[in-house]
Design a protein around this nucleic acid. Structure first.
Lengths: 73, 73
DNA sequence: CCGAAAAGTGCAACATAATGCTCTATTTAT
DNA sequence: ATAAATAGAGCATTATGTTGCACTTTTCGG
């Protein structure tokens, strides 16, 4: 329904770039391993808190920006 | 616990800038009025889906960016 | 100041996110 | 090819997000 895949990809890519496995990320972020597995495998609808914890642990920042109306596609 | 206030402020400011009240936003976004009230009054921990719906309706985009380590504060 | 509109709150029902445990599948290194 | 490491899934439980309804509070125009 939504473009969660974008966020998921970003999180996963970032985690892999940092050579952190799901288990480590679970410890670093305080989010359970089960939840991370679910999230990264594209299931579920994480809460803002969960996403924020993951983002923080990975040095990522969640932001809201005004969408460009006519991007030079 | 987290910096939700930032996102909330952004959503609320955007809504007001567009001169849309909570009721209209509820209709536009498909998120219930009750949930919007809760969210904007700083309570709750919305799901990604809820945030996305609100963001979409307000022409905002949720993004994850690599955090600057030493911003020229 | 007063009334109407908009925003916030308490309560309860329902849906579902978060979690742990166990097991399976896939990936990776030797 | 195989073993070890990493990732994904099923199931059940607990916690909590979403919602509607009714009511209170705040904001704003006249």
């Amino acid at each position: 329904m939504l473009h969660f895949s974008e966020l998921i990809k970003t999180i996963k890519a970032r985690r892999e770039m940092l050579q952190v496995n799901q288990e480590m990320l679970a410890e670093l972020s305080g989010v359970s391993l089960r939840t991370i597995k679910q999230f990264e495998s594209g299931k579920g609808n994480p809460t803002l808190q969960t996403i924020s914890k993951l983002a923080d642990a990975l040095g990522l920042e969640l932001t809201l920006q005004v969408k460009q109306l006519y991007p030079d596609k």
